[in-house]
Write a protein that binds this DNA or RNA. Structure first.
Lengths: 222, 222
DNA sequence: GCGAAGAATCTTGCATACAAGAATATTGAC
DNA sequence: GTCAATATTCTTGTATGCAAGATTCTTCGC
């Protein structure tokens, strides 16, 4: 499939982490992974190194790699930064967008609307990605775009949890609407504010979720 | 020195790139680098991979790695993002700083002042790093801090060029002064604005520099 | 003389081997 | 019975070897 083994390994391990097959704290033994995938340790090491660079796993010298679930407060921090980056993208998009950008953005927005009406959370999830990608693109700052995509990807598993929440899809779409209007009107500050809130809400929802789980666990175990 | 060869190699190659010993477009031959450093190809590969993850070099499958000087407009984009991240750090620092943070920030600021009075641009350069690091720290968002440090590091060679410019050190210190006051007063918006401008100026100065060099080159070569 | 096809060479990608440090188990002392 | 020290095992870090793809050089055809 992939051109080289390293990328295939990286994607596979990444998926295994996101899907929970490789739980937090799990030790990633190079030899075992190599055997498991039927390759040698060399590409495994390189794949692990790449995952370490993203921050998905922690590589401790001479002590192997472990899966790190970022502490909840860290995920919250990441949402904070994401909110600011998205706000920046929105501000620039409002000022710099071309007519082609408008078309892409509107099309993505309408696609979200159709998925919402169909009640298809999975479809909405992907359409939402495209919607945000359109904003990054319209910001006409490629470096910003890359940073946004990387962080968006990193936060993927946490966002995915949220669309299941009651009314989240409706609210999300309403927020998108405000964002689109601001960008098309060239109102950078409004676009930034709308996007910042749109993302910040997710961070807060995540925090709520963590608190809820902690409470449940507390109730069960002590 | 370093614990492992890979880190040593990574730092060395990174320095060679920043210092210009390894110019843009230079092909990084694994075998040659291995011989040069007296190690095997394995750690060289891993070091190159890490540099590729940062974006300092480009790794093309089966075709080796080359040093990529980011195009000027891309550096400008990076300064734009840096400005926004610093502004965010400043806004949070203004709201969240502890008394210990204040002490560190003030100490760093005063150290900059002493280097300025001594007319020592090199010292100022390092003190400036510490000053900004103090702000990241005071933002109490570790993820943001790490992102800032990484980008700051990435932009290092371009910042270094600038302190040589006339009056830049004086102006920089004056801007620092405004930033410190805003943070200590708890004025988040003011701190953000001051920092955004502080960094944006550098991006613009970089653009000026590029334009100037381009003009000179144009005058020479046709 | 110029262009294209093929061969030779060179470089990367992966596998295997070996050495050194960390984790663990075992044994001895208290 | 518990703690500590040592020995053993296990894992990582680095070196080397081999195969496949890329580049370059040579040769042949036009």
């Amino acid at each position: 499939m992939s051109e080289n083994i390293v990328q295939r390994l990286r994607d596979q391990i990444e998926n295994d982490i996101f899907s929970g097959r490789l739980p937090t704290g799990h030790r990633l033994d190079e030899t075992k992974l190599a055997n498991q995938f039927g390759v040698s340790r060399t590409p495994v090491r390189e794949a692990l190194m790449q995952l370490g660079a993203i921050g998905l796993i922690e590589i401790r010298p001479r002590r192997g790699a472990i899966v790190v679930e970022p502490a909840p407060h860290r995920v919250y921090e990441m949402f904070e930064v994401m909110a600011e980056l998205e706000a920046m993208a929105g501000r620039h998009a409002a000022r710099r967008h071309t007519s082609a950008d408008c078309g892409t953005l509107l099309a993505a927005h309408e696609k979200c609307g159709r998925s919402l009406q169909a009640g298809d959370a999975d479809a909405y999830y992907y359409d939402n990605d495209a919607f945000h990608a359109a904003i990054y693109e319209a910001s006409h700052n490629d470096f910003l775009k890359e940073q946004c995509i990387a962080l968006h990807r990193r936060l993927r598993p946490y966002r995915r949890l949220q669309l299941r929440a009651r009314n989240r899809m409706d609210n999300s779409f309403a927020e998108h609407d405000r964002i689109v209007k601001a960008i098309l009107n060239g109102n950078g500050d409004e676009a930034a504010a709308a996007l910042r809130m749109h993302i910040a809400i997710q961070g807060e929802r995540f925090s709520d979720l963590v608190a809820q789980i902690a409470a449940e666990r507390g109730g069960l175990s002590g």
